Amino acid sequence: MPKVRTKDLIEHFQLELIGGENGIDRPIKTSDLSRPGIEMAGFFTYYPADRVQLLGMTELTFFETLTPEQKRDRMNALCTPKTPCIIVTRGQQVPLELMEAACEANVPLLLSTQKTTRLSSRLTNYLESKLAPTTAVHGVLVDIYGVGVLITGSSGVGKSETALELVKRGHRLVADDSVEIRQEDEDTLIGSSPELIEHLLEIRGLGIINVMTLFGAGAVRNHKRISLVIHLEIWDQKKNYDRLGLDEEKMKIIDTDLTKITLPVRPGRNLAVIIEVAAMNFRLKRMGVNAAQQFSERLMNAIETKEE
């Protein structure tokens, strides 16, 4: 099922439909837009027909210099079975030739009062968000000191209970149990909660609780960029866990590599505090302060001094 159709643009941007109403269910498959200036001059060899077409003042001013026959030919070539819609900006008068071609080909013809550049920017942002690659991850997403921390682990390891303690400590819940993730850029992952379980936490033995109702609107967020993954696992005595923090583990989600920290879980460990410190330490590393690296350098200096 297509993620975006022409009718979604009409509703979201309050565009006026003035022709080709039978095509409003056409799918939009790319966030790229087209301003068909060179096509107005008659060059259609590389015409990106599957894009939303924007006609601004420049295109329509040039169009008025054409002969009646050229006008009809250009508009007929512009309206194809693949074209999702044609938007005329700045509230300009729609050429009769365009109206006739759009109605004949059932291409939705839309009118906007916004400036072309402004509308182009808003359309691109909207389509990139809607058409971005998506996935879902089992885990909990919490905003800790501005760092989006995705907490993963097997069922029953204590993810939701840890999230509850973090919320009590003043941090904000984004999603529990299922985190919907979309990739908005090469290195930007945005996490959110499915609408059905938004603001809810499941605590075994207690049931479902509404975090916003219990702790207020300041305890939740609708979405957050994911920067750090913390994986919880039952403490394995035979496994050697990282004690210095020099080795940085990575986890790939869609096409983005995220820093991953594995925390062993056992009775007595205050996971909420450890995760809180991990988020602060992650922020420090991004600012260029690496405690593990500083310790390693200090240790090497001490060894070299002793050898001399």
Results as ranks from 00 to 15, higher is better:
148 G>P: 03
149 V>T: 11
153 G>V: 11
154 S>F: 08
155 S>H: 12
158 G>N: 02
160 S>Q: 02
163 A>C: 12
165 E>A: 15
167 V>I: 08
169 R>S: 11
169 R>A: 14
172 R>T: 02
173 L>H: 04
174 V>E: 06
174 V>F: 01
175 A>H: 01
175 A>D: 04
177 D>V: 04
179 V>T: 03
181 I>K: 01
182 R>T: 04
184 E>Y: 03
192 S>P: 02
192 S>Y: 12
195 E>A: 12
196 L>T: 13
198 E>H: 15
202 E>L: 11
206 L>N: 03
209 I>F: 09
214 L>C: 08
216 G>I: 09
217 A>D: 07
221 R>G: 05
223 H>C: 05
226 I>M: 01
226 I>F: 00
228 L>C: 00
231 H>Q: 15
231 H>P: 07
232 L>Y: 12
233 E>N: 05
233 E>S: 05
235 W>S: 04
236 D>E: 15
236 D>V: 15
238 K>F: 10
239 K>I: 05
239 K>G: 05
243 R>F: 02
245 G>Y: 01
246 L>E: 02
247 D>K: 13
249 E>M: 14
253 I>W: 03
254 I>R: 08
255 D>I: 03
256 T>K: 05
257 D>G: 02
258 L>Y: 12
258 L>R: 08
258 L>D: 06
258 L>Q: 08
260 K>H: 03
260 K>A: 05
262 T>E: 06
266 R>P: 01
266 R>V: 01
269 R>H: 06
271 L>W: 09
